[in-house]
Design a protein around this nucleic acid. Sequence first.
DNA 1: AATTTGACCCGTC
DNA 2: AGACGGGCCAAAT
Length: 110
Amino acid sequence: MSKKTINRNIVAAINRIPYGEVSSYGEVAAAAGLPGRARLVAKTLSESSELNLPWYRVLRASGHIAFPQGTEQFNEQERLLQAEGVAVVRGRVKREKKIMDMDALLWAPD
DNA sequence: AATTTGACCCGTC
DNA sequence: AGACGGGCCAAAT
Protein backbone atom coordinates (compact mmCIF):
# COMPACT_ATOMS: atom_id res chain seq x y z
CA MET A 1 0.00 0.00 0.00
CA SER A 2 1.23 3.43 -0.80
CA LYS A 3 2.14 5.55 2.16
CA LYS A 4 2.48 8.70 0.10
CA THR A 5 0.42 10.46 -2.49
CA ILE A 6 2.70 9.75 -5.41
CA ASN A 7 0.72 10.24 -8.58
CA ARG A 8 1.24 7.32 -10.91
CA ASN A 9 -0.05 9.40 -13.80
CA ILE A 10 2.66 11.96 -13.26
CA VAL A 11 5.34 9.30 -12.90
CA ALA A 12 4.18 7.68 -16.13
CA ALA A 13 4.16 11.01 -17.94
CA ILE A 14 7.73 11.69 -16.87
CA ASN A 15 8.83 8.26 -18.01
CA ARG A 16 7.24 9.01 -21.37
CA ILE A 17 9.63 11.86 -22.14
CA PRO A 18 11.84 10.56 -24.97
CA TYR A 19 15.60 10.30 -24.74
CA GLY A 20 17.31 13.52 -25.68
CA GLU A 21 14.15 15.60 -25.30
CA VAL A 22 12.88 17.78 -22.49
CA SER A 23 9.51 18.77 -21.08
CA SER A 24 8.20 21.20 -18.52
CA TYR A 25 6.32 20.81 -15.27
CA GLY A 26 3.18 22.19 -16.84
CA GLU A 27 3.40 19.87 -19.83
CA VAL A 28 3.94 16.85 -17.62
CA ALA A 29 0.95 17.82 -15.50
CA ALA A 30 -1.23 18.25 -18.57
CA ALA A 31 0.02 14.95 -20.03
CA ALA A 32 -0.93 13.30 -16.74
CA GLY A 33 -4.46 14.68 -17.03
CA LEU A 34 -3.86 17.31 -14.35
CA PRO A 35 -3.77 20.65 -16.16
CA GLY A 36 -2.68 23.60 -14.07
CA ARG A 37 -1.01 21.49 -11.43
CA ALA A 38 2.65 21.94 -12.21
CA ARG A 39 3.46 22.29 -8.53
CA LEU A 40 2.18 18.82 -7.91
CA VAL A 41 4.67 17.57 -10.49
CA ALA A 42 7.47 19.31 -8.64
CA LYS A 43 6.26 17.80 -5.39
CA THR A 44 6.10 14.36 -6.93
CA LEU A 45 9.61 14.67 -8.33
CA SER A 46 11.04 15.72 -4.99
CA GLU A 47 9.39 12.70 -3.38
CA SER A 48 10.27 10.18 -6.06
CA SER A 49 14.05 10.37 -5.76
CA GLU A 50 14.00 6.69 -4.86
CA LEU A 51 12.47 5.78 -8.18
CA ASN A 52 14.80 6.15 -11.13
CA LEU A 53 12.91 8.73 -13.09
CA PRO A 54 14.42 10.89 -15.85
CA TRP A 55 13.83 13.89 -13.60
CA TYR A 56 16.52 15.85 -15.40
CA ARG A 57 14.34 16.05 -18.53
CA VAL A 58 11.85 18.23 -16.70
CA LEU A 59 12.52 21.96 -16.86
CA ARG A 60 10.68 25.16 -16.12
CA ALA A 61 8.37 26.56 -18.79
CA SER A 62 11.07 29.10 -19.64
CA GLY A 63 13.48 26.32 -20.55
CA HIS A 64 15.63 26.90 -17.50
CA ILE A 65 16.80 24.31 -15.03
CA ALA A 66 14.67 24.61 -11.92
CA PHE A 67 17.60 24.69 -9.49
CA PRO A 68 19.75 27.66 -8.59
CA GLN A 69 22.88 27.79 -10.69
CA GLY A 70 25.92 26.36 -8.97
CA THR A 71 24.09 23.84 -6.80
CA GLU A 72 24.97 20.18 -6.97
CA GLN A 73 21.60 19.25 -8.44
CA PHE A 74 21.90 21.95 -11.05
CA ASN A 75 25.29 20.69 -12.14
CA GLU A 76 24.15 17.09 -12.28
CA GLN A 77 21.05 17.94 -14.28
CA GLU A 78 23.10 19.92 -16.75
CA ARG A 79 25.57 17.07 -17.07
CA LEU A 80 22.87 14.44 -17.61
CA LEU A 81 21.15 16.56 -20.24
CA GLN A 82 24.36 17.16 -22.15
CA ALA A 83 25.07 13.44 -21.95
CA GLU A 84 21.89 12.98 -23.99
CA GLY A 85 22.91 15.58 -26.54
CA VAL A 86 20.81 18.42 -25.16
CA ALA A 87 22.55 21.77 -25.41
CA VAL A 88 22.54 23.72 -22.16
CA VAL A 89 23.86 27.26 -21.93
CA ARG A 90 23.91 29.08 -18.61
CA GLY A 91 21.22 26.80 -17.21
CA ARG A 92 19.00 27.20 -20.20
CA VAL A 93 18.15 24.48 -22.70
CA LYS A 94 18.28 25.44 -26.32
CA ARG A 95 15.55 24.37 -28.65
CA GLU A 96 16.04 21.12 -30.48
CA LYS A 97 14.95 22.70 -33.71
CA LYS A 98 17.85 25.08 -33.41
CA ILE A 99 20.15 22.20 -32.62
CA MET A 100 18.92 20.33 -35.70
CA ASP A 101 19.57 23.40 -37.80
CA MET A 102 23.09 23.64 -36.47
CA ASP A 103 23.58 19.96 -37.10
CA ALA A 104 22.36 20.35 -40.66
CA LEU A 105 24.67 23.30 -41.21
CA LEU A 106 27.67 21.44 -39.86
CA TRP A 107 27.02 18.17 -41.63
CA ALA A 108 25.45 19.33 -44.86
CA PRO A 109 27.25 17.87 -47.89
CA ASP A 110 28.53 20.28 -50.52
C1' DA B 1 -6.88 24.51 12.28
C1' DA B 2 -4.34 28.33 10.14
C1' DT B 3 -0.22 29.70 7.80
C1' DT B 4 3.87 28.92 5.18
C1' DT B 5 6.51 26.57 1.82
C1' DG B 6 7.75 24.75 -2.68
C1' DA B 7 12.42 21.18 -8.43
C1' DC B 8 5.72 25.85 -10.95
C1' DC B 9 2.58 28.46 -14.73
C1' DC B 10 0.46 32.16 -17.18
C1' DG B 11 -1.19 36.70 -18.61
C1' DT B 12 -0.06 41.44 -18.24
C1' DC B 13 2.82 45.53 -17.89
C1' DA C 1 14.95 40.80 -19.98
C1' DG C 2 12.29 41.24 -15.30
C1' DA C 3 8.38 42.26 -11.85
C1' DC C 4 3.52 41.49 -10.14
C1' DG C 5 -0.56 39.03 -9.07
C1' DG C 6 -3.58 35.13 -9.17
C1' DG C 7 -3.95 30.14 -9.53
C1' DC C 8 -2.81 25.50 -8.05
C1' DC C 9 -2.38 21.96 -3.90
C1' DA C 10 0.16 18.48 -0.67
C1' DA C 11 3.18 18.53 3.20
C1' DA C 12 5.32 20.74 6.85
C1' DT C 13 5.10 24.05 10.82
